[in-house]
C-alpha cells in the first residue's frame, strides 16, 4: 500500500529524513516512534502528498505522489500534528466544508458529518463555534473531519496529544474499529502504551533514520530485558550510585530522575541492591516497554 525506498527529505541543506525504507501493507496499523525532530512529521507529510520527496522513491496505492498527488489525497484522511480547523465556524460546518473539498454532495456531507460527530462524541456540541471547544475536543473534531471522505488510509500525526486518558482510550477504541473495517492506519506517537496498543508494526526513528523496526513485543524482546527495576535516590545523587550498582543486572541506565536496572527478574535485582546496603527512596519492578527499547537504541528518553 505504501512503499518508500531510500526516502530523503531536505529543507535547504538540512536533511530531516535521511534515507529510510518503509513498506506498509493494506489493513495494517503502522507506527512511527521517535523523539522531537526525528523526522516523523516530515515523513508523514511526504506520505500525505503535501511535501515533495527530495530523493528516493515513494509509491502510495501504487501511485507516484509527484504525478498523482491529488488522486492519492482523495483516498486518504489526514490528522495533522497541529489542528487546522476553521475556528470561526460551527462544528458541523467544519465537517461539511471539508467534505465539500472532496466534492461530496452537500446532503451526503451533512449525513456523514452527523454520524462522525456521534463517532467522536461531540454530537451535543454540533452547533457550537469551534473556538469554544477545549483542546482535546478540537483534536477529536480533527479526527472526525479526516474520516469524511471514507479514506482507505488514515494518517494520524500524534493523534492523542492533548487528550485526557479517558478520551485517549475512547479514541484507541475508535481507531481499532476503523482498523477492523479494513482502514490502514499510519500514526506517529510519543506514547509507548499507545504504540503497543495500536500498532501491528512500528519503526523507531532518530535523527532522520530508522534505528529499529518490528512488532512492539518483538522489539522489546530484541532490545530489552524481560523486567526493569526502577530506583529513585535522593535528588541529584543518582550518578553517585552508578559504580555501586555496576555489576547488577544485564544493563543499567542512569537518568536524571531515576536509575533503571534491566534483568530477567526484577525482584531478584532488588534483593541484590538491598544486599549492598543501598536504600533508594523508592523501588519499582515493572515489565519492559517500548520506552526501554527507545532508551537502549538512542540513549535518550522519549518524552523529555
Amino acid at each position: 500500500m505504501i512503499v518508500g525506498e531510500n526516502l530523503v527529505k531536505r529543507f535547504g541543506d538540512f536533511e530531516a529524513v535521511r534515507g529510510i525504507d518503509i513498506r506498509i501493507e493494506r489493513g495494517e496499523s503502522f507506527g512511527f516512534l521517535g523523539p522531537n525532530g526525528a523526522g516523523k512529521s516530515s515523513t508523514m507529510r511526504m506520505i500525505g502528498c503535501v511535501s515533495p520527496v527530495s530523493s528516493g522513491s515513494l509509491r502510495i496505492f501504487g501511485l507516484d505522489p509527484a504525478s498523482h498527488g491529488a488522486e492519492i489525497r482523495a483516498r486518504i484522511g489526514v490528522v495533522p500534528q497541529l489542528d487546522n480547523l476553521d475556528t470561526e465556524l460551527k462544528l458541523i460546518d467544519n465537517l461539511v466544508v471539508y467534505g465539500r473539498y472532496f466534492d461530496i454532495p452537500r446532503k451526503e456531507c451533512l449525513r456523514r458529518s452527523e454520524e462522525l460527530l456521534d463517532f467522536v462524541q461531540l454530537a451535543d456540541r454540533r452547533n457550537d463555534i469551534v473556538e469554544t471547544l477545549s483542546g482535546g475536543m478540537k483534536r477529536r473534531l480533527t479526527i472526525a473531519r479526516s474520516l469524511i471522505n471514507q479514506p482507505e488510509l488514515l494518517l494520524l500525526d500524534e493523534p492523542t496529544t492533548g487528550l485526557d486518558p479517558q478520551a485517549r482510550h475512547i479514541l484507541w477504541d475508535r481507531l481499532y474499529r476503523l482498523k477492523q473495517q479494513g482502514v490502514t492506519l499510519v500514526l506517529t506517537t510519543h506514547y509507548m502504551d499507545e504504540a503497543e496498543q495500536l500498532c501491528d508494526r512500528l519503526v523507531v526513528m532518530d535523527g532522520g533514520r530508522i534505528v529499529a523496526e518490528g512488532a512492539p513485543r518483538q522489539l522489546i524482546v530484541d532490545h530489552s530485558s524481560r523486567e526493569v527495576l526502577e530506583l529513585r535516590f535522593p535528588a541529584g545523587t543518582n550518578a553517585d550510585f552508578e559504580s555501586a550498582l555496576a555489576d547488577i543486572g544485564d544493563r543499567r541506565e542512569v537518568l536524571p530522575d531515576r536509575v533503571l536496572i534491566y534483568g530477567h527478574d526484577g525482584d531478584e535485582l532488588l534483593r541484590l541492591v538491598h544486599a549492598r546496603d543501598l536504600h533508594p527512596e523508592s523501588a519499582l519492578v515493572r515489565r519492559s516497554t517500548l520506552e526501554d527499547v527507545f532508551l537502549r537504541l538512542t540513549g535518550r528518553s522519549l518524552v523529555e
Binding site: A74, P80, N84
Partner: peptide
C-alpha cells in the same frame, strides 16, 4: 498554523 489553506492542501485540491 490553523490555516484553512493547509487543510485544503491535504485534500484532493
Amino acid at each position: 498554523w490553523g490555516g484553512s489553506f493547509e487543510a485544503m492542501a491535504a485534500t484532493e485540491l
